[in-house]
Design a protein around this nucleic acid. Structure first.
Lengths: 225, 225
DNA sequence: GCATTCATTTGCGTATACATTAAGGAATGC
DNA sequence: GCATTCCTTAATGTATACGCAAATGAATGC
């Protein structure tokens, strides 16, 4: 395992990546406790790098460390989702505004355009998983285009926190036709340099996504994901 | 040193607090490097808790850890300030909106009212430091009233990042009469449940603060604070 | 004098040992 | 049977030791 400079990752960094993945996929299920020693054995390293990794993931809101009970994977409740989506919505909308103000040319918007294309193709094939990938690509690229690294990091952190809930509800939600339409409008607004439209349409989009996912969680009594 | 449950803080937690304080006050100056061993000696503990503390503070954007060069205290540039203020402005404005929507009674708003009173008294005495304390209290309480814990944590993180720059420029800026006026309007809007006004006035307030501080930094060639 | 090589030093990341203390279970008393 | 006390176990937080690799300085060759 290497990082972007082809240097092998330290054990601690590897532990971060693998624990994060296990949390996001639900392999380490919400609400479960795991001793440091157990995780260390599983990852094939000593407790020290595992502890470092867990401390970091704790600061990103994915788990909590409780002495003598171990590492608890934090569940996400509908109220948590409200909090997270509020933060996400504000920050992504600002990114959309900034992207529209930035005066990007067509080349700059290649990935954003491609992600939209992917989503459209996925919906034609009723492939919701491919659609979700395109959606993630769109949002991630949009935030990158907003040009604020701190904002990007915070959004990433929030996205991680809602990952399991989004995956769990992917097949329960209506076909995301409206999402694709919103994405198209946001992209066009960015092309046109229309910051107000980019911002408000994206805000509305995220707000609706929040309402949809929360009502699904409540309807299906999914209290701790 | 104890936490809120009167349990003694672990060495690692103490290291977090003390290093953070040293960074915020400039005792550990921006741009300087410090070996883990050096910090450990200074704090009177082994390297392990210092390393854990430094990793946490790195994730909060206050420092970076560079192998063999040690812990580098991250300077803050005018561009950093732009990023930070953008995030702050969006999130605090949302908090103001939510506070106004929440229907708080006069008792709930005691601390917010008191902080305003302190700022006004401080300005009558030309005591800018007391004013800054009141200002911090106002903003912190406003965000708490917004009721989103994640938002609160992010704002705290951003505030820490701009702390030195704000302290350094406190006596360079115009007398903050407009600030006090803005705070009054925001508080009244919250009392009245006027979410739009609370949000927009606060947004404008933070936007202006951003402009003021950045122009001060640039005017005085303060590139790395 | 400059470039290269080699040896030494040192800082980091990790593994391991240790001290502390919380938790659980067993024994005792009412 | 339940509450209390005592003892044992085990998990954590920390200190220390160790291996690795990067950095530095000295020696050598051209």
């Amino acid at each position: 395992m290497t990082d972007s400079n082809d240097k092998p990752l330290s054990s601690s960094q590897r532990a971060v990546h693998e624990l994060r993945q296990m949390i996001l996929t639900g392999q380490l299920a919400a609400g479960t406790d795991h001793l440091e020693s157990e995780l260390a054995a599983h990852l094939g390293m000593s407790r020290t790098p595992v502890r470092e990794a867990a401390l970091l993931l704790e600061s990103k809101g994915l788990l909590e460390m409780r002495p003598r009970k171990g590492v608890r994977i934090l569940p996400v409740s509908p109220d948590d989702m409200r909090e997270i989506y509020d933060v996400l919505t504000e920050l992504e909308s600002l990114a959309a505004q900034r992207a529209a103000e930035a005066g990007y040319g067509p080349k700059d918007l290649t990935l954003l355009t491609e992600s939209l294309h992917r989503m459209e193709q996925a919906l034609e094939k009723d492939d919701l998983e491919a659609w979700a990938e395109g959606d993630e690509m769109f949002h991630s690229e949009l935030v990158r285009l907003g040009g604020n690294k701190r904002l990007q990091d915070i959004v990433s952190m929030m996205i991680d926190q809602v990952r399991r809930a989004r995956s769990s509800t992917l097949f329960m939600r209506p076909k995301p036709l409206k999402s694709n339409e919103d994405h198209r409008v946001v992209l066009q607004a960015i092309r046109d340099g229309d910051a107000d439209l980019a911002r408000s349409r994206h805000h509305q989009h995220r707000q609706q996504a929040k309402d949809v996912i929360i009502s699904l969680l409540e309807k299906h009594r999914l209290r701790q994901l």
